[in-house]
Amino acid sequence: MKKILITGANGMLGTAIAAELIDYTLFVFSSKELDITCSFQLDQKIKNIQPDYIINCAAYTAVDLAESEQEKAFKINAIAVQKMAQIAKQYNATLIHFSTDYVFNGEATVSYLTDQKTDPINVYGASKLAGEKAITQIDGKHYIFRISWLYAPHGKNFFRWVAETDMKELNIVDSQTGSPTSALDVATFIKEVIENDPATYGIYNFTNQGEMTWYAFAKAINQKLGLSKMIQPVAEFKTAAKRPFYSVMNCEKTERVFDYQIPSIEKGLHEVVRRFKS
């Protein structure tokens, strides 16, 4: 039975992945139980467990706060990730790590390929890109999956906010286009990767298939949940961090290499709604 260590296991993605991999020998650690910025802790855990896979779901994800907490963002998303990749290589574990669409500047008009030029426009994106580069330079067994606009029936996310807010009128930005991606679908895919690992290491894009704005996504959530909220489009909100206007990523390479059909945005949302209601 493969041994799998999951960091950041209490977050939205870690929770979904741990639930999906329940049949494996799991070692799950919340960020409180395993601080990935402490190299000694990390080394001890990995040395004692000797996992086949390390799935890193620990990350600094506060996009706006990162603008004023640059050091903290880089410490978690880059420096700690570099150390994790070194330790994973030392103990011959495969590292599965998650990056973001925010490594791109959002000026494209067609979906981004994995090898396209990166050019983050905020600190969060820059810190995640630094993490990617650290892993690839160490050259151990690794998969980096760039995901985007993550949501789930659990945790703190856009879907839950639209579903549960008391506000009857929502003003939602209509100038950013991306691919809302269900953490449940990411988790199902990660199980597939572990079960049928092709050992074709590198960077991949994984998002639900299709594209829409946040406004269109809010309307879809409203409709699927049978809510009657008034949803209005707005051009932009003033935020501390800039957002890419267009961050749709091309996932053809992922589907080909892993022989896997990624579900559409609609299918992903349908399942999240079903789980949320049950």
Score class of each variant (00 low, 15 high):
residue 63 V to G: 12
residue 28 V to H: 07
residue 73 A to H: 08
residue 43 D to P: 02
residue 55 I to Y: 09
residue 76 I to C: 07
residue 83 K to E: 14
residue 45 K to N: 04
residue 35 D to N: 14
residue 54 I to A: 00
residue 67 E to I: 06
residue 29 F to S: 02
residue 76 I to V: 13
residue 54 I to H: 03
residue 39 S to E: 14
residue 58 A to T: 06
residue 79 I to E: 15
residue 52 D to A: 11
residue 43 D to G: 03
residue 75 K to Y: 05
residue 79 I to Q: 15
residue 80 A to I: 03
residue 53 Y to N: 05
residue 82 Q to S: 15
residue 63 V to E: 11
residue 53 Y to L: 01
residue 51 P to C: 00
residue 63 V to L: 12
residue 49 I to D: 01
residue 31 S to V: 03
residue 61 T to Q: 14
residue 30 S to E: 06
residue 50 Q to D: 03
residue 72 K to Q: 13
residue 30 S to A: 08
residue 56 N to D: 07
residue 62 A to W: 04
residue 57 C to F: 00
residue 74 F to W: 08
residue 72 K to M: 07
residue 66 A to G: 13
residue 33 E to S: 10
residue 79 I to S: 14
residue 28 V to P: 08
residue 57 C to N: 11
residue 28 V to F: 02
residue 78 A to V: 08
residue 78 A to R: 11
residue 36 I to W: 00
residue 65 L to N: 13
residue 62 A to D: 13
residue 67 E to G: 10
residue 62 A to S: 15
residue 44 Q to S: 13
residue 81 V to T: 15
residue 45 K to G: 00
residue 50 Q to N: 08
residue 54 I to C: 04
residue 73 A to V: 06
residue 50 Q to W: 00
residue 48 N to Y: 00
residue 52 D to Y: 05
residue 57 C to D: 01
residue 64 D to C: 07
residue 67 E to C: 04
residue 41 Q to C: 09
residue 64 D to W: 03
residue 70 Q to A: 13
residue 80 A to M: 04
residue 65 L to R: 15
residue 35 D to V: 07
residue 61 T to E: 13
residue 51 P to E: 01
residue 72 K to F: 02
residue 83 K to L: 05
residue 72 K to G: 02
residue 51 P to H: 03
residue 36 I to A: 00
residue 59 A to L: 02
residue 55 I to N: 09
residue 36 I to H: 00
residue 61 T to G: 10
residue 75 K to G: 05
